[in-house]
Simulated assay, not measured.
Amino acid sequence: MMFTLADYDAAKAAVVRLEKSWENYMGGNTKKFETQLREARDRLSTIELSLLESGELEPTELQAANLELDRLYPYAKAKTRQEFGGNIYEIHYWRESISLSGKTTRLRHEWRRIESTPPL
């Protein structure tokens, strides 16, 4: 699905609105807004990744490296190390969101810069 910058702005506004609702909530239900907030954050994350991949959002240096490493090594397992652009990167996976029952609903990964390779 193709997303626009308007979708991105609307998703960011929805997350901010839900976070403010949670902050202003005075009731005793500790799970109030949790599901809606998780879904809003998941949608924002999906839209942001789509816009980064399509080039509509300007990626940071690390985001650009992540996108390129994902393209080069789409099936990398956890803790895999690869050299890219004079640096060594290691892929890490984590649960981005968890349902109320404790099940993983969204898994994320990121290539983290470990060290620079010494010049030859």
Rank of each mutant, 00 (worst) to 15 (best):
A11E: 00
A11H: 01
K12D: 01
K12C: 14
K12N: 10
A13K: 15
A13C: 08
A14F: 00
V15M: 02
V15G: 03
V15S: 02
V16L: 13
R17F: 08
R17P: 02
L18K: 07
L18R: 06
E19M: 14
E19C: 11
S21G: 13
S21L: 06
E23I: 05
E23A: 15
N24Y: 10
M26G: 03
G28S: 11
G28M: 08
N29C: 02
N29G: 01
N29E: 13
N29M: 05
T30A: 03
K31S: 11
K31P: 00
K32R: 15
K32T: 08
K32S: 09
E34H: 05
E34W: 07
E34P: 02
E34D: 14
T35Q: 06
T35N: 05
Q36L: 02
Q36T: 01
L37R: 15
L37W: 03
L37N: 09
R38P: 00
A40V: 11
A40R: 05
R41C: 11
D42N: 14
D42Y: 01
D42G: 05
D42W: 01
R43T: 14
L44H: 03
L44E: 08
S45T: 10
S45H: 10
S45Y: 08
T46G: 14
I47C: 01
I47Q: 01
E48I: 00
E48K: 12
L49M: 06
L49K: 04
S50C: 12
L51E: 07
L51W: 10
L51D: 07
L52I: 09
E53M: 04
E53D: 03
S54Y: 10
S54I: 13
G55Q: 01
E56P: 01
E56W: 05
L57Q: 05
E58S: 04
E58T: 10
P59F: 07
T60D: 11
E61K: 06
E61W: 04
Q63S: 12
A64S: 12
A65I: 06
L67W: 04
L67E: 09
